[in-house]
Simulated assay, not measured.
Amino acid sequence: MERSRQQLTKTNGRTRPKKLYNDSDDERLDLKIDSIREKTRTPCFVYVLTFFSSLGGFLIGYDTYIISGAKIWLKKEFSLTYMWQEIIVAVTLGVAAIFALIGGILNDRLGRRSVILCACIVFTAAAILMGIANDKYMLLSGRILTGIAVGQFIYLFFH
């Protein structure tokens, strides 16, 4: 037993320190200063942008897939032919593909924050336009605006 106590207190000919710092207040002070970090607050505006960005992702999926179920009522309401149904469904994705390319240029020139806010405004205008549409041309215009906003968001999500 005596020998095992000696092994605990001595390793490689040196005794183990009983404290972390052996009479070195300077070292202790240096370590405390190194461990102090500045606490940074995230601005509220960042949370608002994050919310709208995630809402944009939701709207992309919702708008792309909800149109398939809405085609039945749109056909009856606006007396759409098969050609017009295809145009109204496909125009959003076609315009989104074009504006995904333009979104890169807008992102570089205006910044992510401005593009997100602009896309949210365009989404809102598109929703209002589609909601008050009384003919197929207004509905098509709303779908084109939706494609513009979707294209801006697609670039933000994948870049």
Rank of each mutant, 00 (worst) to 15 (best):
M1P: 12
R3K: 12
S4E: 14
S4M: 11
R5G: 01
R5Q: 08
R5S: 06
Q6M: 11
L8M: 10
L8R: 10
T9G: 02
K10F: 15
T11R: 14
T11A: 10
N12H: 10
N12W: 04
R14L: 12
T15V: 14
R16H: 08
R16P: 04
K18F: 13
L20T: 08
Y21R: 05
D23S: 08
S24M: 04
D25L: 11
E27M: 08
R28A: 13
D30P: 00
L31D: 14
L31H: 08
K32C: 08
I33D: 08
D34Q: 14
R37S: 08
E38A: 11
T40K: 15
T42F: 07
P43Y: 00
P43A: 01
C44R: 11
C44N: 12
F45C: 02
Y47E: 01
F51R: 00
F51C: 03
S53L: 13
F58N: 02
I60Q: 09
I60W: 05
G61H: 03
G61P: 03
Y62M: 06
D63G: 15
D63K: 02
T64D: 10
T64K: 11
I66T: 13
A70C: 07
K71S: 15
K71Y: 06
I72A: 14
I72Q: 12
W73T: 15
L74M: 15
K76G: 09
E77L: 12
E77P: 04
E77A: 14
S79D: 15
L80C: 12
Y82D: 15
Y82K: 08
Y82L: 12
M83Q: 15
W84L: 09
W84T: 10
Q85D: 06
E86N: 15
I87D: 07
I88C: 03
A90P: 04
T92G: 09
L93V: 15
G94L: 15
V95N: 03
A97T: 13
A97Q: 03
A97F: 07
I98M: 12
I98V: 14
I98R: 06
F99W: 05
F99A: 02
A100D: 11
G103W: 03
G104V: 04
G104Y: 04
I105K: 14
I105M: 10
L106T: 02
N107K: 10
R109I: 13
R109S: 10
R109N: 10
L110P: 00
R112C: 05
R113K: 15
S114E: 13
V115Q: 02
V115M: 02
I116S: 01
L117E: 00
C118Q: 06
V122Y: 02
A125I: 11
I128P: 00
M130D: 13
G131Y: 07
I132Y: 06
I132H: 03
I132M: 08
I132F: 10
N134D: 09
K136T: 03
K136C: 00
Y137A: 09
Y137I: 09
M138F: 13
L139H: 05
L140Y: 05
S141H: 01
I144G: 02
L145Q: 04
T146N: 09
A149I: 05
V150E: 11
V150P: 03
F153Q: 04
F153N: 06
Y155D: 07
F157T: 07
F158N: 15
H159K: 08
H159A: 08
